[in-house]
C-alpha cells in the first residue's frame, strides 16, 4: 500500500466524499476553547490546531451510556427490542493513542463472547489518524506502544507536511478509500517523504519514557495489592473516574435498568474501578476497600493482565490520566517507583 499526498486545498473535497461513507466526526473548537469530536461538523468548524481532545474517541464505539435493549412487560413475559443499527462512522483527526485504544478494545470485546454493539460500530467505521507533531510532555505513546513508528488501529494516517498531508493507508479499507478518490491525491515527492521521517524522529525524541514495561508483570506478582507500597501510593487519590473515563483503552461498564415499572431499558454505563463501589458485591463484601488496592487493580489490569490475556498493554500513552487527574497522579512515576520498590521483610 502506497503513501499518497493530499494537497491542503483538497481536504474539504475529500472530507465531503468521506461524508458519503457515514457520519463524519471531527475535532471542533468550542467558544471557550474546549476541543471535542463532534458529529457532522461544517468544514470551517473543524480544527487541526489541537494537541489532543480531552475526551478520546472511545465514546463513539463504547458510548458512556448505551441502551442494550428496550423492554416491555406483557402478559406472561416480556418483549425485548434491540436498537436499530446505526450509520457507519468516519472519524477524522484521531490521534495515534486514541486509534490504538480501539485496537485494545477490539481485543477486549471479542474474546470467548463478542460484544455486538461495539463490534458492529467498529466494523463499519473508518478511522483517519493525524500524526501528532507536538506531543505533550506527559505523552508516552512511543515508549509504551511504539505508536510513532508503528501506528495501530487506524485505517489511514495523515502526516501534516508542507502544503498538505501525506496519507499512509494502514489497512486495506484505508487503501481502498484513498483509491476511490484518486483525483484528489498525488504521488508524494522525495522531500515530503523526508519531511515526514524528520517529523517522526522529532516527535519520538520529544517523548520520554522512564519505565521498562516488560518488567511489570513479574513485579505485580511480587508486590500484591496488600503491600504497603500500594497503600501509600493511593493516598493522594480522590477516587474519581477521570483516569478511567478519559482512557482510550478502558472497557469496564456497569449495567442498570431504567424503568417506569412496565416498560424501560437496560442501559450500560462506563464504570471506574477507582470507585469504591465498583467491586463491592451485593451483601456488602468489598474486595478492594483501599484506594491503593484499586490502583493496583487498574494498573495490573493494564500492564500485566491485559498483556497475558489479550497480548497487548491496555495503555496507549496518551497521558490524559496524568494531565486531567485532580491530583496529577503520574502513572509512569508510580510504575517506576513500583519497579524500584523493595519490600522490607521483617
Amino acid at each position: 500500500m502506497n503513501m499518497k499526498f493530499l494537497p491542503a486545498a483538497s481536504l474539504k473535497d475529500w472530507l465531503d466524499l468521506l461524508r458519503s461513507h457515514g457520519t463524519l466526526i471531527a475535532p471542533v473548537k468550542e467558544k471557550d476553547g474546549f476541543i471535542a469530536f463532534r458529529p457532522d461538523p461544517d468544514f470551517e468548524d473543524i480544527t487541526l490546531d489541537y494537541q489532543n481532545t480531552v475526551r478520546p474517541i472511545r465514546e463513539f464505539f463504547l458510548p458512556h451510556s448505551e441502551t442494550l435493549f428496550n423492554f416491555e412487560t406483557v402478559q406472561n413475559g416480556f418483549d425485548i427490542e434491540r436498537n436499530k443499527p446505526e450509520e457507519p462512522l468516519v472519524i477524522f483527526g484521531v490521534r495515534l493513542c486514541d486509534a490504538c485504544g480501539l485496537e485494545a478494545l477490539d481485543r477486549a470485546f471479542s474474546g470467548k463472547y463478542t460484544d455486538p454493539y461495539y463490534t458492529e460500530r467498529r466494523k463499519n467505521a473508518l478511522i483517519i489518524s493525524l500524526f501528532c507533531t507536538e506531543p505533550h510532555p506527559a505523552c508516552f505513546c512511543e515508549g509504551v506502544q511504539k505508536l510513532m513508528t508503528g501506528p495501530k488501529g487506524a485505517d489511514i494516517l495523515l502526516y501534516p507536511v508542507e502544503g498538505g498531508f501525506l496519507a499512509d493507508p494502514l489497512s486495506e479499507k484505508g487503501d481502498k478509500i484513498i483509491g476511490e478518490s484518486k483525483k484528489l491525491f498525488k504521488e508524494p515527492d522525495a522531500e515530503q517523504l523526508k519531511a515526514k521521517d524528520a517529523m517522526v524522529e522529532k516527535a519520538v525524541g520529544a517523548q520520554s519514557c522512564i519505565v521498562d514495561f516488560s518488567l511489570l508483570p513479574e513485579k505485580f506478582k511480587e508486590l500484591p495489592p496488600s503491600s504497603p507500597f500500594w497503600r501509600e501510593e493511593g493516598e493522594g487519590c480522590v477516587s474519581c473516574g477521570v483516569c478511567s473515563f478519559l482512557c482510550p483503552a478502558c472497557q469496564c461498564f456497569s449495567v442498570q435498568d431504567i424503568s417506569d415499572g412496565k416498560s424501560g431499558k437496560r442501559v450500560r454505563c462506563w464504570a471506574t474501578c477507582q470507585d469504591c463501589r465498583f467491586a463491592k458485591m451485593a451483601g456488602g463484601i468489598d474486595p478492594r476497600p483501599e484506594k491503593g488496592e484499586r490502583h493496583y487493580h487498574r494498573l495490573s489490569h493494564k500492564f500485566a493482565d491485559a498483556p497475558a490475556r489479550n497480548d497487548m498493554i491496555f495503555c496507549t500513552g496518551c497521558g490524559r490520566c496524568i494531565r486531567y487527574c485532580p491530583s496529577h497522579h503520574d502513572v509512569l512515576e508510580t510504575l517506576k517507583k513500583f519497579l524500584e520498590y523493595e519490600e522490607v521483610k521483617p
Partner: peptide, 14 residues
C-alpha cells in the same frame, strides 16, 4: 456482572 467476560469487573489476574 455480565457473565460473558466483557464488562471487566471480575478480573482475577489475567
Amino acid at each position: 456482572q455480565c457473565g460473558v467476560g466483557l464488562c471487566g469487573r471480575c478480573g482475577l489476574g489475567d
